[in-house]
Design a protein around this nucleic acid. Structure first.
Lengths: 147, 147
DNA sequence: GCTTGACCCTGTAGTGACTACAGGGTTCAG
DNA sequence: CTGAACCCTGTAGTCACTACAGGGTCAAGC
């Protein structure tokens, strides 16, 4: 093999990305289909490591594939203003913050009801909290369902 | 229709769950297939509202379908100790906390690099942060890929 | 030259928890 | 009797991979 190119395994190793994932990124168009050897093996120019690394960093920060596609396009036009990249980052930050708020609510509710340490089920705070105590439905209604 | 039973739409309304989702829960075995009318319509006993509500609350707290299945089974045995429900809740709380930690790291990284407000792309902190600055790969390597 | 094991290929199906049709049938009020 | 609102089944789509099945290729050691 040529010294200046990489097999898909070497590329994956270099960028910290699974081989299957590299092929997936090719399929969805995040990386170009590389030249092939006579036997059909992919041979990547070394620069692709950088692109793949960019993609991985983006994923680690929680950007979607589509957002990364947009960011890569922006990165190809270094002289244009980066207002769009800015907007993407702001929107993404807002989404992440919303998810944190969601999970924090969950955590607070969960830690309120954990833990009863071996009571019988009919006293369990968790199962109790999940159940409904309106007049029109009773615990028996749940328990009555056959197993 | 009998006054004591509910159509799937009425059930969904009563428990705050989408009709399609009710059918999905039946398919995966969270709720029993109800009796059908001559024309094939599902007719639910009123108690199912309670069970569906239990499921919805569980989902809101982030439990998976399989966890809810286990909790429902536990709820059917009110005289056994609830150590297992406890364990599920503890594990789930740990997962939620791990997710919060993950997202918080993301948020911190994101808010560090947002926002450059209209600089050109080659100065953009976001794109810069995604890029790699090791010797073996250059920004040109990314920009060189055709669009 | 042959074997062995590590690597590579394609294509498909699975994950979780729904959601969104397509293409029909039923019910009921006006 | 008509039309809207509801119901049915079954399939495919979502997202970002991951896991095969069932092959082919390559390089090193004997």
């Amino acid at each position: 093999m040529s010294a200046s190119t990489l097999t898909i395994g070497q590329l994956g190793n270099a960028a910290g990305v699974n081989v299957e994932t590299v092929r997936y990124y090719e399929k969805v168009g995040l990386i170009q289909p590389p030249p092939r050897s006579a036997s059909g093996y992919r041979h990547y120019p070394a620069g692709v490591v950088h692109r793949l690394h960019f993609i991985r960093r983006g994923r680690e920060l929680g950007f979607t594939i589509e957002e990364i596609r947009a960011l890569l396009t922006l990165a190809h036009h270094p002289d244009e203003p980066c207002a769009q990249a800015d907007l993407l980052a702001r929107q993404h930050l807002a989404e992440v913050e919303a998810k944190i708020a969601d999970l924090t609510r969950m955590r607070d509710e969960l830690s309120k009801l954990a833990f009863c340490d071996g009571h019988a089920v009919h006293d369990c705070r968790l199962l109790d909290a999940l159940s409904c105590h309106d007049d029109h439905c009773s615990v028996e209604a749940v328990s009555a369902s056959p197993t």
